[in-house]
């Protein structure tokens, strides 16, 4: 069955997008990403270490940009200006690459997004020719506004970044999904495989996660579990679940032909 994820005119087989942070080393990062089957991977943009460790391997040596679709993020940015500046540098760094993840944070403790700044940054970036995948609160009105600005994907949180608390408000996610004309991906909050499956069963087009894999006891094993959960949840969504009933007077086995 051909069921591809389409973002900004490009198609992907995998609906699991993964971050590259918090791993023990680059070897583990690579192994976990391979096990996840992810084609889109997020990276952060940071100051280069000057004058030290000149020959040290970099993330790009282990995850060549030719093999993956890089999704540079604006993690750590607290204003629209900083986020825009970061992504312009990312575009230069990645040879004109347009697909980016916008996130503007509002609070260092919760990492909850600042949606006023996010909206402002999204406007500037879309005008500047970027394909913006945007991290946002699970407010259906904000999600719609981001879509109308021209973002190519809307990515509400399931719960706070790095919390692993799972899908806290499936009803809001469902409203966002039902109203959206662009892909909706859950970004942040997934803790384990069942969370990923639930998000996909709700009709999400994909999931972006980092900590749920990197902070697992065995990240590579969890990466494989997440791959299967995303696939299982997607197939269950496409198949359409049976209606829920408190009880059923219709057993699965025939009622006739019983021995007596």
């Amino acid at each position: 069955m051909s069921d591809l994820l389409k973002i900004a005119d490009k198609t992907y087989h995998s609906r699991l997008l993964v971050g590259t942070g918090k791993y023990k080393d680059f070897t583990e990062t690579r192994a976990a990403i391979d096990a996840s089957g992810a084609e889109i991977i997020t990276v952060a943009i940071r100051r280069t270490n000057i004058g030290q460790n000149a020959g040290e391997p970099s993330l790009l040596d282990f995850l060549p940009p030719e093999e993956f679709t890089y999704l540079p993020n604006t993690a750590g940015c607290y204003s629209a200006d900083d986020a825009v500046r970061t992504l312009r540098l990312a575009r230069e760094l990645l040879d004109g690459h347009k697909l980016v993840k916008l996130e503007v944070l509002g609070d260092p403790n919760t990492l909850y997004p600042n949606m006023m700044e996010t909206l402002a940054a999204a406007k500037t970036l879309v005008k500047d020719g970027f394909d913006v995948m945007v991290y946002c609160s699970d407010d259906p009105i904000i999600a719609k506004q981001l879509e109308e600005i021209g973002c190519v994907a809307v990515m509400p949180l399931a719960s706070l970044i790095g919390s692993g608390m799972g899908i806290l408000n499936p009803w809001n996610l469902q409203i966002i999904i039902e109203n959206a004309k662009v892909p909706v991906l859950v970004d942040a909050g997934v803790g384990t495989a069942s969370d990923a499956a639930i998000a996909m069963e709700l009709g999400c087009q994909g999931i972006l996660m980092n900590t749920a894999i990197a902070a697992a006891g065995n990240p590579v094993l969890m990466a494989g579990a997440m791959k299967k959960a995303v696939e299982a949840g997607r197939e269950a969504y496409l198949a359409g679940r049976m209606p829920k009933k408190l009880y059923s007077a219709s057993p699965s086995s025939p009622t006739s032909g019983l021995i007596s």
Partner: peptide, 24 residues
């Protein structure tokens, strides 16, 4: 990058040099 050769630095310039690192 195409302007690295042609761009002369001046006293007092402020530079940011960045790369890609692991992140989520």
């Amino acid at each position: 990058r195409s302007q690295f050769e042609a761009t002369q630095l001046a006293d007092g310039d402020k530079l940011e040099i960045v790369g890609a690192v692991g992140g989520g």
